[in-house]
Design a protein around this nucleic acid. Structure first.
Length: 802
DNA sequence: AGCACGCCGACT
DNA sequence: GTCGGCGTGCTC
């Protein structure tokens, strides 16, 4: 038998299958998806994954044998093996890179090289090793030339050798478990025989006689009886009980036992949506639904019912949520409904917890998976339903390699499994909403809020006209007064500062004008190195203006405000207010995110001030005011999605006010009070926003009317990167002339990363079946001129352009 | 990627 | 002659 293997060497030239003979003793164990260790090259050993098993080979040379199979159960299901083939082609990534991202990180091999002596009685060998049996090559100081020389000398005369090790980091947690072996009668006899002062052993025997509820973990037993491990060892030696190793799972959250199926009465709209979803699940159709529901319309309840139905059908369900919404409260909600059938996967778990949750899925013990982006690769079998909540969230697209979009993967898995896919959002991405219009997706709408609450009133404050409180031009008097009122009434405020501040674009303080590219209608970004304003899309540059080109005022400034600055200012303006700040800086440590939110939930602060991470999912009944410090920040970003992102953010953050009995209000500060994204967010009118934004996209030839791919060229030598970028552009023009639009090449915003220069080209295309093949060709061709360390990265449907 | 091999100049 | 530096090519 011959195994075709993808080896753990991420490089263009090794991105293919290598064949290995399967030794007879392993023939029964090896399967498609098995993780194996194979010899590779003259001396290396590497990890690999079995893609297929065949009987014949075309290989001319002598095949090597695979060395071992690492796991009992193959980590990859045949579905995931197939998926990796498609996805690697689709997103221009190495197959091994995809395979590794599909699996928990502990399944990545550790490679070590160690020196071992081949002769014992040699002076130089003993000098090198001392007392040690082996030396890890990684621990040798590569500056120390005498040691290096000695090692090389000894290697040449075969007195020592290098051993290549492949180590698995996957550790299974085991506990010691106690089982009784003797009957109560026999134990009573033992009790009689004990010395009178053997109190600990008496305690243990009495327990064993009366409590037959075994097996029990040793730690638990020790705690219950307040006895030590030594006592148990004695007992084991005397043959009263046996100890055995038992595997346990590291569980992230202690599961709540109350399976409260508080079946809320669903509204007619919810029932209708649910019916369509369940019909599709039960009929095994790979239908995609877009569930468009206003905030508070009870999408989650629909999901939970749909999952319950899927389980009843004997199938499994996968639910993706943005990382930020994976709060313990949300997880508990799902666990309360489905108990141990739920596995949770997100970045807050330790490696061990992730591995154990993953194993519960792989062993078909968990039937429901809730997780962030990478959970889309969960090895569920018999998948019946996939849900992507907040489907518009940009966090579903990974922004470094492999640059996959969870939505694309979900679509593939839905098709493969004939499973139903539900995309849910109050503010769907234009791409998804447009597909619903073309009936590629089925549109389901929820227009009514479950608690009959009206949406909070949203007021827009024009920063051009407003009176500012304090010295700075950040907080209007009206906003500060509103906060003061809330503080007095002991109600809470959420204040959103759109992005972490940094001066990257120019805004006129008197008229709100933002300096934009004349070709792209995208705001220009300040490049410090050249002291110029530059467009990220087409490369247009111009000088930094000293006065506003629109109103000629000299109030034009780099824009940027930080949470820290606002916090200080608020402290001065409302000294009695207690402020909690939440941004990248205050949430860097693990668990601090939760700690801040819990503190706010316990009313330990009046104001929660934060970046967009506070816009989603938070549900605090005492919050009656939401303030948006500057709605323009996202709007002015050099991104054709800036209006969409602004609309989504404002809609979402508005949903944070007035969640319970208290009526909420929202104050939005902006320099662009007439901008449609802001006006329509005020009325929470997604549909109108969608239609208007579609026109803008149509005019600018942007998605969803065009597909986009971003080609990045990098090299240590800036000239080479630029040259290659222009060569690629010329090729594209020649081969696909008239059928694609090409922007650039332009140096990327951060044009130098880790000593490498980056140039990028944006390709826009309507339907281009040849493009994919052509881009692969380009990537291959450039790679052959490897002399200058030239690299081509291709990002399909990029979200960030830097 | 990361290994060995081979060719070349520098030093015992 | 021997040692180490770097460019090249291959990995079932």
């Amino acid at each position: 038998m011959i195994a075709q293997v993808v080896v753990d060497v991420a490089a263009k030239q090794t991105d293919r299958l290598f064949e290995y003979l399967v030794p007879h003793i392993l023939e029964n164990d090896v399967q498609v998806g098995s993780r194996v260790v194979v010899p590779f090259g003259k001396s290396r050993k590497v990890q690999g994954f079995v893609i297929s098993l065949v009987d014949e080979t075309d290989y001319e040379g002598q095949l090597k044998e695979l060395l071992m199979i690492v796991d009992e159960l193959p980590p990859l299901t045949p579905e995931l093996v197939d998926l990796s083939a498609w996805l690697s082609q689709y997103i221009f990534s190495y197959r091994i890179t995809i395979l590794k991202t599909m699996l928990p990180s502990v399944l990545r091999a550790n490679y070590r090289k160690i020196l071992v002596p081949l002769v014992k009685d040699d002076l130089e060998v003993r000098q090198l090793f001392g007392e040690k049996q082996e030396i890890d090559l990684a621990e040798i100081d590569d500056q120390d030339s005498t040691i290096i020389a000695s090692i090389n000398r000894l290697l040449r005369v075969d007195k020592i050798k290098i051993e290549y090790l492949v180590e698995s980091r996957a550790k299974v947690k085991e506990i010691s478990e106690i089982t009784a072996v003797k009957s109560s009668g026999e134990l009573r006899v033992e009790l009689e025989k004990l010395r009178a002062n053997a109190h600990q052993q008496q305690k243990l025997l009495n327990f064993l006689i009366t409590e037959p509820k075994l097996p029990l973990s040793q730690t638990e037993l020790e705690q219950q009886l307040a006895i030590s491990g030594a006592t148990i060892k004695v007992a084991a030696d005397k043959g009263w009980l046996t100890r055995s190793k038992a595997e346990v799972y590291r569980r992230p959250i202690t599961t709540q036992t109350n399976k409260n199926r508080n079946d809320l009465v669903l509204l007619p709209e919810q029932v209708q949506a649910l019916e369509q979803i369940t019909t599709s699940v039960n009929a095994d159709t790979a239908t995609t639904f877009l569930l468009e529901g206003v905030t508070g319309s009870g999408k989650t309840e629909v999901y939970l019912h749909a999952i319950a139905n899927t389980l009843d059908e004997g199938k499994t369900a996968l639910m993706l949520v943005p990382e930020i919404s994976l709060t313990p409260q949300m997880v508990r909600q799902v666990q309360a409904r489905f108990g141990d059938a739920v596995a949770v996967l997100h970045s807050g778990l330790s490696e061990g917890e992730k591995y154990d949750e993953w194993r519960r899925i792989r062993r078909n013990e968990a039937k429901v998976v809730v997780g962030a982006r990478s959970a889309i690769f969960a090895p569920l079998q018999n998948l019946g339903l996939i849900i992507i909540d907040e489907e518009h969230e940009s966090s579903y697209k990974q922004d470094d390699t492999p640059r996959y979009h969870a939505r694309d993967v979900a679509f593939w898995r839905s098709d493969y499994n004939k499973a139903t896919l539900v995309l849910g959002s109050a503010t769907p991405s234009l791409e998804s909403r447009a597909r619903a219009s073309k009936n590629v997706y089925q549109l389901l709408t929820l227009t009514k809020r479950t608690n009959q609450q009206s949406l909070p009133t949203v007021k827009i404050l024009d920063l051009k006209e407003a009176k500012f409180a304090g010295e700075q031009f950040d907080l209007t008097q009206e906003l500060v007064d509103a906060i003061k009122t809330r503080v007095q009434r002991k109600e809470q405020t959420i204040l959103l500062l759109n992005r972490r501040g940094f001066s990257s674009f120019m805004l006129c303080r008197s008229c709100g004008f933002v300096l934009k590219c004349p070709n792209c209608d995208i705001s220009l970004t300040y490049h410090k190195s050249t002291n110029q304003m530059k467009c990220h899309y087409c490369g247009h540059t111009e000088a930094v203006p000293t006065s506003c080109p629109n109103c000629h005022s000299d109030e034009i400034r780099f824009y940027g405000t930080g949470t820290q600055k606002i916090e200080e200012e608020l402290g001065k303006l409302i000294p009695q207010a207690r402020i909690l700040r939440m941004d990248v800086d205050t949430t860097r440590k693990k668990g601090s995110y939760e700690r801040i939110l819990n503190a706010f939930g316990r009313n330990e602060a009046d104001i929660l001030l934060g970046t967009q991470m506070i816009a989603k999912g938070l549900d605090f009944s005492n919050v009656t005011l939401v303030g948006v410090i500057n709605a323009d920040t996202a709007l002015s970003f050099p991104d054709f999605r800036s209006a969409e992102k602004t609309f989504q953010l404002l809609t979402q953050v508005s949903g944070r006010a007035g969640r319970a009995a208290l009526k909420g209000s929202v104050l939005v500060q902006t320099y662009n009070p007439e901008h449609y994204a802001i006006v329509l967010a005020q009325s929470q009118d997604y549909e109108r926003f969608y239609h208007q934004e579609m026109q803008v996209r149509h005019q600018g030839n942007y998605p969803p009317y065009f597909f986009t791919s971003l080609i990045s060229v990098s090299s240590k030598n800036e000239q080479n990167a630029a040259k290659e970028a222009f060569i690629i552009k010329r090729k594209l023009m020649r081969e696909l002339n008239g059928r694609v639009l090409i922007l650039g090449p332009t140096p990327s915003a951060v044009s130098k990363i880790k000593q490498h220069y980056f140039y990028q080209i944006l390709v826009k295309y309507k339907r281009e079946p040849e493009l994919n093949a052509f881009l692969h060709e380009i990537q291959d061709a450039a790679q052959t001129q490897k002399k200058y360390g030239l690299n081509i990265y291709i990002d399909r449907e990029p979200d960030k352009f830097m």
